[in-house]
Design a protein around this nucleic acid. Structure first.
Lengths: 227, 227
DNA sequence: ACCTGAACACCGTTCAAGT
DNA sequence: ACCTGAACACCGTTCAAGT
Protein backbone atom coordinates (compact mmCIF):
# COMPACT_ATOMS: atom_id res chain seq x y z
CA UNK A 1 0.00 0.00 0.00
CA UNK A 2 2.90 2.35 0.63
CA UNK A 3 3.88 2.53 -3.01
CA UNK A 4 2.02 2.36 -6.26
CA UNK A 5 3.64 0.18 -8.78
CA UNK A 6 3.14 1.03 -12.38
CA UNK A 7 0.34 -1.01 -13.86
CA UNK A 8 0.59 -2.53 -17.27
CA UNK A 9 -1.93 -1.19 -19.72
CA UNK A 10 -3.99 -4.33 -19.56
CA UNK A 11 -5.30 -5.95 -16.40
CA UNK A 12 -4.37 -9.31 -17.82
CA UNK A 13 -0.85 -10.29 -16.73
CA UNK A 14 1.89 -9.82 -19.26
CA UNK A 15 1.31 -12.21 -22.12
CA UNK A 16 2.58 -15.59 -21.01
CA UNK A 17 4.64 -17.61 -23.46
CA UNK A 18 2.69 -20.08 -25.51
CA UNK A 19 2.92 -23.76 -24.68
CA UNK A 20 0.77 -26.86 -24.76
CA UNK A 21 -0.08 -26.38 -21.10
CA UNK A 22 -0.99 -22.72 -21.56
CA UNK A 23 -3.28 -23.67 -24.44
CA UNK A 24 -5.07 -26.33 -22.41
CA UNK A 25 -5.49 -23.87 -19.54
CA UNK A 26 -7.00 -21.33 -21.87
CA UNK A 27 -9.25 -23.98 -23.43
CA UNK A 28 -10.51 -24.97 -19.99
CA UNK A 29 -11.28 -21.35 -19.19
CA UNK A 30 -13.21 -20.95 -22.43
CA UNK A 31 -15.08 -24.18 -21.77
CA UNK A 32 -16.18 -23.16 -18.29
CA UNK A 33 -17.03 -19.59 -19.27
CA UNK A 34 -18.63 -19.99 -22.69
CA UNK A 35 -19.62 -23.64 -22.85
CA UNK A 36 -18.56 -26.45 -25.11
CA UNK A 37 -20.07 -25.12 -28.31
CA UNK A 38 -17.75 -22.12 -28.11
CA UNK A 39 -14.64 -24.19 -27.65
CA UNK A 40 -13.03 -23.26 -30.93
CA UNK A 41 -9.49 -22.64 -32.03
CA UNK A 42 -10.29 -18.98 -32.59
CA UNK A 43 -11.73 -18.41 -29.14
CA UNK A 44 -8.91 -20.22 -27.39
CA UNK A 45 -6.45 -18.14 -29.40
CA UNK A 46 -8.32 -14.97 -28.44
CA UNK A 47 -8.16 -16.04 -24.80
CA UNK A 48 -4.38 -16.10 -25.25
CA UNK A 49 -4.32 -12.73 -27.01
CA UNK A 50 -3.10 -14.13 -30.27
CA UNK A 51 -4.36 -15.31 -33.60
CA UNK A 52 -5.56 -18.83 -34.28
CA UNK A 53 -2.54 -19.64 -36.41
CA UNK A 54 -0.34 -19.64 -33.33
CA UNK A 55 -2.06 -22.66 -31.85
CA UNK A 56 -1.05 -24.84 -34.75
CA UNK A 57 2.52 -24.80 -33.53
CA UNK A 58 1.43 -26.87 -30.51
CA UNK A 59 -1.77 -28.63 -31.55
CA UNK A 60 -2.31 -30.58 -34.74
CA UNK A 61 -5.94 -29.60 -35.16
CA UNK A 62 -9.22 -29.17 -33.33
CA UNK A 63 -9.37 -32.87 -32.55
CA UNK A 64 -5.98 -32.64 -30.89
CA UNK A 65 -7.22 -29.77 -28.76
CA UNK A 66 -10.17 -31.87 -27.66
CA UNK A 67 -7.97 -34.84 -26.81
CA UNK A 68 -5.82 -32.65 -24.59
CA UNK A 69 -8.84 -31.15 -22.90
CA UNK A 70 -10.49 -34.49 -22.18
CA UNK A 71 -7.40 -35.66 -20.40
CA UNK A 72 -7.41 -32.46 -18.40
CA UNK A 73 -11.04 -32.92 -17.38
CA UNK A 74 -10.23 -36.45 -16.29
CA UNK A 75 -7.97 -34.96 -13.64
CA UNK A 76 -10.99 -34.19 -11.47
CA UNK A 77 -12.07 -37.84 -11.35
CA UNK A 78 -11.56 -39.96 -8.25
CA UNK A 79 -9.58 -42.93 -9.56
CA UNK A 80 -8.53 -44.54 -6.29
CA UNK A 81 -9.46 -48.08 -5.31
CA UNK A 82 -8.20 -49.88 -2.26
CA UNK A 83 -10.14 -53.07 -2.91
CA UNK A 84 -12.59 -52.50 -0.07
CA UNK A 85 -15.46 -51.45 -2.32
CA UNK A 86 -16.72 -54.37 -4.44
CA UNK A 87 -15.36 -54.19 -7.97
CA UNK A 88 -18.75 -53.97 -9.63
CA UNK A 89 -19.82 -51.03 -7.48
CA UNK A 90 -16.52 -49.29 -8.04
CA UNK A 91 -16.91 -49.78 -11.77
CA UNK A 92 -20.41 -48.31 -11.72
CA UNK A 93 -19.16 -45.36 -9.75
CA UNK A 94 -16.21 -44.45 -11.94
CA UNK A 95 -18.26 -44.83 -15.11
CA UNK A 96 -21.08 -42.70 -13.67
CA UNK A 97 -18.52 -40.06 -12.67
CA UNK A 98 -17.03 -40.03 -16.14
CA UNK A 99 -20.45 -39.89 -17.73
CA UNK A 100 -21.38 -36.95 -15.52
CA UNK A 101 -18.23 -35.14 -16.55
CA UNK A 102 -19.04 -35.58 -20.22
CA UNK A 103 -22.79 -35.07 -20.01
CA UNK A 104 -22.29 -31.46 -18.98
CA UNK A 105 -20.24 -30.91 -22.12
CA UNK A 106 -21.92 -32.59 -25.08
CA UNK A 107 -19.42 -31.40 -27.66
CA UNK A 108 -16.64 -32.89 -25.60
CA UNK A 109 -18.53 -36.16 -25.24
CA UNK A 110 -18.75 -36.36 -29.00
CA UNK A 111 -15.04 -35.75 -29.18
CA UNK A 112 -14.36 -38.52 -26.69
CA UNK A 113 -15.97 -40.94 -29.13
CA UNK A 114 -13.55 -40.41 -31.93
CA UNK A 115 -10.46 -39.39 -30.04
CA UNK A 116 -8.18 -41.40 -27.87
CA UNK A 117 -7.56 -38.90 -25.14
CA UNK A 118 -3.90 -38.23 -24.89
CA UNK A 119 -2.34 -37.87 -21.47
CA UNK A 120 -1.55 -39.18 -18.02
CA UNK A 121 -5.04 -38.99 -16.56
CA UNK A 122 -6.45 -41.15 -19.31
CA UNK A 123 -3.83 -43.76 -18.49
CA UNK A 124 -4.89 -43.61 -14.83
CA UNK A 125 -8.48 -44.27 -15.85
CA UNK A 126 -7.54 -47.20 -18.06
CA UNK A 127 -5.38 -48.58 -15.27
CA UNK A 128 -8.29 -48.49 -12.83
CA UNK A 129 -10.62 -50.18 -15.29
CA UNK A 130 -8.11 -52.93 -15.99
CA UNK A 131 -7.61 -53.51 -12.24
CA UNK A 132 -11.36 -53.80 -11.69
CA UNK A 133 -11.79 -56.17 -14.61
CA UNK A 134 -8.90 -58.29 -13.39
CA UNK A 135 -10.58 -58.46 -9.97
CA UNK A 136 -13.70 -59.64 -11.77
CA UNK A 137 -11.70 -62.48 -13.24
CA UNK A 138 -11.80 -61.25 -16.82
CA UNK A 139 -8.97 -62.44 -19.05
CA UNK A 140 -6.56 -60.02 -20.73
CA UNK A 141 -8.02 -59.98 -24.19
CA UNK A 142 -11.58 -59.51 -22.95
CA UNK A 143 -10.40 -56.85 -20.50
CA UNK A 144 -8.63 -54.87 -23.20
CA UNK A 145 -11.68 -54.92 -25.45
CA UNK A 146 -14.01 -54.28 -22.53
CA UNK A 147 -12.19 -51.05 -21.66
CA UNK A 148 -12.89 -49.81 -25.15
CA UNK A 149 -16.49 -50.93 -25.00
CA UNK A 150 -17.16 -49.40 -21.59
CA UNK A 151 -15.60 -46.05 -22.45
CA UNK A 152 -17.34 -45.99 -25.79
CA UNK A 153 -20.66 -46.66 -24.11
CA UNK A 154 -20.15 -43.92 -21.56
CA UNK A 155 -19.20 -41.36 -24.20
CA UNK A 156 -22.13 -42.28 -26.41
CA UNK A 157 -24.56 -42.25 -23.50
CA UNK A 158 -23.29 -38.88 -22.34
CA UNK A 159 -23.58 -37.42 -25.83
CA UNK A 160 -27.10 -38.77 -26.13
CA UNK A 161 -28.17 -37.46 -22.72
CA UNK A 162 -26.79 -34.04 -23.35
CA UNK A 163 -28.25 -33.79 -26.82
CA UNK A 164 -31.68 -34.80 -25.65
CA UNK A 165 -31.52 -32.41 -22.74
CA UNK A 166 -30.61 -29.56 -25.07
CA UNK A 167 -33.46 -30.27 -27.46
CA UNK A 168 -35.86 -30.46 -24.55
CA UNK A 169 -39.15 -32.10 -25.46
CA UNK A 170 -39.32 -31.23 -29.13
CA UNK A 171 -37.52 -34.18 -30.63
CA UNK A 172 -39.01 -36.59 -28.16
CA UNK A 173 -42.43 -35.52 -29.31
CA UNK A 174 -41.39 -36.18 -32.90
CA UNK A 175 -40.28 -39.65 -31.93
CA UNK A 176 -43.44 -40.40 -30.01
CA UNK A 177 -45.45 -39.32 -33.01
CA UNK A 178 -43.37 -41.55 -35.29
CA UNK A 179 -43.81 -44.51 -32.97
CA UNK A 180 -47.50 -43.88 -32.60
CA UNK A 181 -47.81 -43.86 -36.38
CA UNK A 182 -46.68 -47.49 -36.52
CA UNK A 183 -49.11 -49.43 -38.64
CA UNK A 184 -50.10 -52.58 -36.72
CA UNK A 185 -50.03 -54.58 -39.94
CA UNK A 186 -46.56 -53.47 -40.92
CA UNK A 187 -45.13 -53.26 -37.40
CA UNK A 188 -47.13 -55.70 -35.28
CA UNK A 189 -44.50 -56.18 -32.58
CA UNK A 190 -43.81 -52.48 -32.26
CA UNK A 191 -47.50 -51.67 -32.17
CA UNK A 192 -48.02 -54.15 -29.35
CA UNK A 193 -45.26 -52.44 -27.35
CA UNK A 194 -45.72 -50.03 -24.55
CA UNK A 195 -44.09 -47.13 -26.38
CA UNK A 196 -43.32 -45.45 -23.07
CA UNK A 197 -40.67 -48.13 -22.63
CA UNK A 198 -38.89 -47.02 -25.77
CA UNK A 199 -38.80 -43.31 -25.11
CA UNK A 200 -38.96 -42.92 -21.35
CA UNK A 201 -37.50 -44.32 -18.19
CA UNK A 202 -35.27 -42.77 -15.60
CA UNK A 203 -31.91 -42.30 -17.36
CA UNK A 204 -29.98 -43.20 -14.21
CA UNK A 205 -31.72 -46.56 -13.95
CA UNK A 206 -31.43 -47.18 -17.66
CA UNK A 207 -27.75 -46.43 -17.67
CA UNK A 208 -27.04 -48.59 -14.64
CA UNK A 209 -28.87 -51.38 -16.42
CA UNK A 210 -26.79 -50.80 -19.56
CA UNK A 211 -23.53 -50.98 -17.63
CA UNK A 212 -24.67 -54.18 -15.91
CA UNK A 213 -25.49 -55.61 -19.32
CA UNK A 214 -21.98 -54.81 -20.49
CA UNK A 215 -20.39 -56.30 -17.39
CA UNK A 216 -22.43 -59.49 -17.50
CA UNK A 217 -21.78 -59.86 -21.19
CA UNK A 218 -18.05 -59.43 -20.76
CA UNK A 219 -18.03 -62.01 -17.98
CA UNK A 220 -19.94 -64.41 -20.20
CA UNK A 221 -17.56 -63.81 -23.12
CA UNK A 222 -14.34 -64.00 -21.12
CA UNK A 223 -12.22 -67.13 -20.94
CA UNK A 224 -12.50 -68.97 -17.62
CA UNK A 225 -10.72 -67.11 -14.81
CA UNK A 226 -7.01 -67.73 -14.74
CA UNK A 227 -6.87 -68.88 -18.35
CA UNK B 1 -34.79 -37.99 -83.55
CA UNK B 2 -37.09 -36.58 -86.19
CA UNK B 3 -37.63 -33.31 -84.42
CA UNK B 4 -35.57 -31.14 -82.10
CA UNK B 5 -37.41 -29.92 -79.13
CA UNK B 6 -36.43 -26.61 -77.65
CA UNK B 7 -34.05 -27.08 -74.77
CA UNK B 8 -34.32 -25.05 -71.63
CA UNK B 9 -31.37 -22.84 -70.95
CA UNK B 10 -30.05 -25.14 -68.25
CA UNK B 11 -29.40 -28.83 -68.69
CA UNK B 12 -30.95 -29.47 -65.28
CA UNK B 13 -34.68 -30.15 -65.63
CA UNK B 14 -36.95 -27.27 -64.81
CA UNK B 15 -36.66 -26.47 -61.14
CA UNK B 16 -38.82 -28.97 -59.29
CA UNK B 17 -41.00 -27.68 -56.48
CA UNK B 18 -39.44 -27.88 -53.07
CA UNK B 19 -40.60 -30.57 -50.67
CA UNK B 20 -39.26 -32.73 -47.92
CA UNK B 21 -38.76 -35.57 -50.39
CA UNK B 22 -36.97 -33.35 -52.90
CA UNK B 23 -34.63 -32.14 -50.17
CA UNK B 24 -33.75 -35.65 -49.05
CA UNK B 25 -33.13 -36.64 -52.67
CA UNK B 26 -30.79 -33.72 -53.12
CA UNK B 27 -29.04 -34.48 -49.83
CA UNK B 28 -28.48 -38.06 -50.95
CA UNK B 29 -26.99 -36.84 -54.22
CA UNK B 30 -24.65 -34.49 -52.36
CA UNK B 31 -23.68 -37.27 -49.98
CA UNK B 32 -22.80 -39.71 -52.75
CA UNK B 33 -21.03 -37.13 -54.87
CA UNK B 34 -19.15 -35.00 -52.31
CA UNK B 35 -19.04 -37.15 -49.21
CA UNK B 36 -20.46 -36.70 -45.75
CA UNK B 37 -18.31 -33.75 -44.74
CA UNK B 38 -19.86 -31.69 -47.50
CA UNK B 39 -23.41 -32.52 -46.52
CA UNK B 40 -24.36 -29.01 -45.49
CA UNK B 41 -27.51 -26.97 -45.72
CA UNK B 42 -25.83 -24.65 -48.20
CA UNK B 43 -24.71 -27.39 -50.54
CA UNK B 44 -28.06 -29.15 -50.49
CA UNK B 45 -29.71 -25.83 -51.22
CA UNK B 46 -27.29 -25.23 -54.08
CA UNK B 47 -28.12 -28.68 -55.43
CA UNK B 48 -31.72 -27.48 -55.55
CA UNK B 49 -30.80 -24.18 -57.19
CA UNK B 50 -31.92 -22.10 -54.28
CA UNK B 51 -30.59 -20.39 -51.20
CA UNK B 52 -30.17 -22.14 -47.86
CA UNK B 53 -33.03 -20.21 -46.30
CA UNK B 54 -35.51 -22.14 -48.40
CA UNK B 55 -34.72 -25.41 -46.69
CA UNK B 56 -35.85 -24.10 -43.34
CA UNK B 57 -39.43 -24.23 -44.50
CA UNK B 58 -39.22 -28.03 -44.55
CA UNK B 59 -36.40 -28.95 -42.17
CA UNK B 60 -35.96 -27.62 -38.65
CA UNK B 61 -32.17 -27.58 -38.75
CA UNK B 62 -29.12 -29.56 -39.81
CA UNK B 63 -29.92 -32.29 -37.31
CA UNK B 64 -33.35 -32.67 -38.88
CA UNK B 65 -31.74 -33.05 -42.29
CA UNK B 66 -29.51 -35.80 -40.94
CA UNK B 67 -32.44 -37.63 -39.33
CA UNK B 68 -34.26 -37.65 -42.65
CA UNK B 69 -31.20 -38.86 -44.50
CA UNK B 70 -30.47 -41.69 -42.09
CA UNK B 71 -33.95 -43.03 -42.60
CA UNK B 72 -33.43 -42.83 -46.33
CA UNK B 73 -30.15 -44.74 -46.15
CA UNK B 74 -31.89 -47.40 -44.08
CA UNK B 75 -34.05 -48.15 -47.12
CA UNK B 76 -31.20 -50.15 -48.65
CA UNK B 77 -31.04 -52.54 -45.70
CA UNK B 78 -32.39 -56.07 -45.90
CA UNK B 79 -34.84 -56.25 -43.02
CA UNK B 80 -36.60 -59.50 -43.80
CA UNK B 81 -36.65 -62.50 -41.47
CA UNK B 82 -38.65 -65.62 -42.02
CA UNK B 83 -37.45 -67.33 -38.86
CA UNK B 84 -35.26 -69.83 -40.71
CA UNK B 85 -31.99 -68.13 -39.85
CA UNK B 86 -31.22 -68.37 -36.10
CA UNK B 87 -32.08 -65.14 -34.32
CA UNK B 88 -28.55 -64.49 -33.10
CA UNK B 89 -27.10 -64.80 -36.60
CA UNK B 90 -29.82 -62.61 -38.05
CA UNK B 91 -29.10 -60.01 -35.39
CA UNK B 92 -25.38 -60.04 -36.17
CA UNK B 93 -26.14 -59.67 -39.83
CA UNK B 94 -28.51 -56.73 -39.61
CA UNK B 95 -26.25 -54.88 -37.18
CA UNK B 96 -23.22 -55.50 -39.38
CA UNK B 97 -25.17 -54.24 -42.39
CA UNK B 98 -26.20 -51.11 -40.52
CA UNK B 99 -22.67 -50.56 -39.28
CA UNK B 100 -21.34 -50.89 -42.82
CA UNK B 101 -23.85 -48.33 -44.02
CA UNK B 102 -22.74 -45.82 -41.40
CA UNK B 103 -19.03 -46.59 -41.48
CA UNK B 104 -18.80 -45.27 -45.02
CA UNK B 105 -20.25 -41.98 -43.83
CA UNK B 106 -18.68 -40.96 -40.51
CA UNK B 107 -20.51 -37.67 -40.20
CA UNK B 108 -23.79 -39.50 -40.59
CA UNK B 109 -22.77 -42.06 -38.01
CA UNK B 110 -22.14 -39.23 -35.57
CA UNK B 111 -25.56 -37.90 -36.39
CA UNK B 112 -27.16 -41.27 -35.74
CA UNK B 113 -25.89 -41.07 -32.19
CA UNK B 114 -27.77 -37.95 -31.24
CA UNK B 115 -30.73 -38.19 -33.53
CA UNK B 116 -33.65 -40.52 -33.50
CA UNK B 117 -33.98 -41.14 -37.19
CA UNK B 118 -37.38 -40.12 -38.33
CA UNK B 119 -39.21 -42.22 -40.81
CA UNK B 120 -40.69 -45.51 -41.92
CA UNK B 121 -37.45 -47.40 -42.53
CA UNK B 122 -36.27 -46.76 -39.01
CA UNK B 123 -39.51 -48.27 -37.76
CA UNK B 124 -38.90 -51.33 -39.92
CA UNK B 125 -35.46 -51.73 -38.35
CA UNK B 126 -36.81 -51.41 -34.82
CA UNK B 127 -39.54 -53.90 -35.65
CA UNK B 128 -36.99 -56.47 -36.81
CA UNK B 129 -34.83 -55.98 -33.72
CA UNK B 130 -37.83 -56.39 -31.44
CA UNK B 131 -38.88 -59.56 -33.25
CA UNK B 132 -35.40 -61.04 -32.89
CA UNK B 133 -35.19 -60.14 -29.22
CA UNK B 134 -38.62 -61.63 -28.61
CA UNK B 135 -37.43 -64.81 -30.31
CA UNK B 136 -34.49 -64.78 -27.92
CA UNK B 137 -36.91 -64.75 -25.01
CA UNK B 138 -36.09 -61.23 -23.89
CA UNK B 139 -38.82 -59.46 -21.93
CA UNK B 140 -40.41 -56.22 -23.17
CA UNK B 141 -38.57 -53.78 -20.95
CA UNK B 142 -35.18 -55.32 -21.64
CA UNK B 143 -35.98 -55.51 -25.36
CA UNK B 144 -36.92 -51.85 -25.53
CA UNK B 145 -33.73 -50.79 -23.82
CA UNK B 146 -31.67 -53.29 -25.77
CA UNK B 147 -32.78 -51.76 -29.07
CA UNK B 148 -31.40 -48.45 -27.90
CA UNK B 149 -28.20 -50.02 -26.66
CA UNK B 150 -27.60 -52.04 -29.82
CA UNK B 151 -28.23 -49.13 -32.16
CA UNK B 152 -26.11 -46.84 -30.02
CA UNK B 153 -23.29 -49.32 -30.09
CA UNK B 154 -23.45 -49.69 -33.84
CA UNK B 155 -23.45 -45.95 -34.42
CA UNK B 156 -20.57 -45.38 -32.03
CA UNK B 157 -18.57 -48.25 -33.48
CA UNK B 158 -19.15 -46.99 -37.01
CA UNK B 159 -18.10 -43.46 -36.07
CA UNK B 160 -14.99 -44.81 -34.41
CA UNK B 161 -14.07 -47.05 -37.36
CA UNK B 162 -14.52 -44.29 -39.84
CA UNK B 163 -12.63 -41.73 -37.82
CA UNK B 164 -9.69 -44.04 -37.31
CA UNK B 165 -9.66 -44.97 -40.96
CA UNK B 166 -9.59 -41.31 -41.95
CA UNK B 167 -6.73 -40.48 -39.63
CA UNK B 168 -4.77 -43.45 -40.93
CA UNK B 169 -1.87 -44.39 -38.71
CA UNK B 170 -1.06 -41.02 -37.22
CA UNK B 171 -3.30 -41.05 -34.18
CA UNK B 172 -2.74 -44.70 -33.56
CA UNK B 173 0.97 -44.00 -33.32
CA UNK B 174 0.24 -41.29 -30.78
CA UNK B 175 -1.77 -43.72 -28.72
CA UNK B 176 0.87 -46.42 -28.89
CA UNK B 177 3.42 -43.89 -27.72
CA UNK B 178 1.18 -42.84 -24.84
CA UNK B 179 0.60 -46.45 -23.84
CA UNK B 180 4.28 -47.27 -24.10
CA UNK B 181 5.05 -44.32 -21.83
CA UNK B 182 3.10 -45.98 -19.01
CA UNK B 183 5.27 -45.94 -15.90
CA UNK B 184 5.27 -49.47 -14.43
CA UNK B 185 5.10 -48.00 -10.92
CA UNK B 186 2.11 -45.81 -11.62
CA UNK B 187 0.37 -48.15 -14.06
CA UNK B 188 1.48 -51.66 -13.16
CA UNK B 189 -1.48 -53.47 -14.68
CA UNK B 190 -1.33 -51.49 -17.89
CA UNK B 191 2.42 -51.96 -18.14
CA UNK B 192 2.00 -55.71 -17.82
CA UNK B 193 -0.50 -55.70 -20.68
CA UNK B 194 0.15 -56.69 -24.20
CA UNK B 195 -0.53 -53.24 -25.63
CA UNK B 196 -1.28 -54.74 -29.01
CA UNK B 197 -4.51 -55.98 -27.45
CA UNK B 198 -5.58 -52.44 -26.67
CA UNK B 199 -4.89 -50.89 -30.04
CA UNK B 200 -5.10 -53.70 -32.53
CA UNK B 201 -7.22 -56.64 -33.46
CA UNK B 202 -9.30 -57.32 -36.51
CA UNK B 203 -12.20 -54.87 -36.25
CA UNK B 204 -14.65 -57.43 -37.63
CA UNK B 205 -13.81 -59.92 -34.91
CA UNK B 206 -13.79 -57.25 -32.24
CA UNK B 207 -17.16 -55.98 -33.26
CA UNK B 208 -18.70 -59.43 -33.42
CA UNK B 209 -17.37 -60.00 -29.92
CA UNK B 210 -18.88 -56.69 -28.78
CA UNK B 211 -22.30 -57.57 -30.16
CA UNK B 212 -22.14 -60.99 -28.50
CA UNK B 213 -21.28 -59.25 -25.24
CA UNK B 214 -24.34 -57.07 -25.60
CA UNK B 215 -26.59 -59.99 -26.46
CA UNK B 216 -25.35 -62.18 -23.61
CA UNK B 217 -25.63 -59.28 -21.19
CA UNK B 218 -29.18 -58.51 -22.24
CA UNK B 219 -30.12 -62.18 -21.85
CA UNK B 220 -28.59 -62.19 -18.38
CA UNK B 221 -30.40 -58.99 -17.41
CA UNK B 222 -33.78 -59.93 -18.84
CA UNK B 223 -36.56 -61.30 -16.70
CA UNK B 224 -37.15 -65.03 -17.21
CA UNK B 225 -38.81 -65.77 -20.54
CA UNK B 226 -42.53 -65.24 -20.52
CA UNK B 227 -42.44 -63.04 -17.45
C1' DA C 1 13.97 -19.40 -35.79
C1' DC C 2 9.81 -18.56 -34.21
C1' DC C 3 5.44 -16.58 -34.52
C1' DT C 4 1.23 -14.58 -36.63
C1' DG C 5 -1.82 -11.16 -39.68
C1' DA C 6 -4.49 -11.69 -43.08
C1' DA C 7 -6.69 -14.31 -46.30
C1' DC C 8 -9.18 -18.33 -48.17
C1' DA C 9 -12.90 -21.06 -48.26
C1' DC C 10 -16.27 -22.18 -46.06
C1' DC C 11 -20.37 -22.74 -42.21
C1' DG C 12 -25.84 -22.36 -39.83
C1' DT C 13 -29.52 -19.49 -39.21
C1' DT C 14 -32.46 -15.37 -39.45
C1' DC C 15 -35.36 -11.91 -41.31
C1' DA C 16 -36.76 -8.20 -44.14
C1' DA C 17 -38.18 -7.80 -48.45
C1' DG C 18 -39.76 -9.52 -52.61
C1' DT C 19 -43.29 -12.12 -55.93
C1' DA D 1 -49.01 -16.87 -48.73
C1' DC D 2 -44.97 -18.55 -49.87
C1' DC D 3 -40.25 -18.18 -50.77
C1' DT D 4 -35.47 -16.34 -50.61
C1' DG D 5 -31.40 -12.66 -51.17
C1' DA D 6 -28.55 -10.88 -48.43
C1' DA D 7 -26.67 -10.30 -44.16
C1' DC D 8 -24.96 -11.65 -39.54
C1' DA D 9 -21.95 -13.95 -36.90
C1' DC D 10 -19.22 -17.10 -36.95
C1' DC D 11 -15.81 -21.44 -38.32
C1' DG D 12 -10.71 -24.34 -39.39
C1' DT D 13 -6.57 -24.08 -41.61
C1' DT D 14 -2.75 -22.25 -44.40
C1' DC D 15 1.06 -19.48 -45.70
C1' DA D 16 3.55 -15.44 -46.80
C1' DA D 17 5.52 -12.09 -44.41
C1' DG D 18 7.13 -10.10 -40.38
C1' DT D 19 10.35 -9.75 -35.93
Amino acid sequence: MSSREPVSRRTRPAKAPLSRAAIVDAALRVLERDGGSKLTMRRVAAELDTGPASLYVYVRNTTGLHALLIDRLLASLDLAWDGAEPWRERLHRVLADYRGLLAERPEIARGALSVWPDGPNYLDLVELLLRLLAAAGVDQRAAAWAVDLLLQHVSAAAAEWAERAADAGQDLDDLSATLASADPRRHPVLASFDTALLTAGDPEIRDRWAVDVLIDGVLARSAPAGA
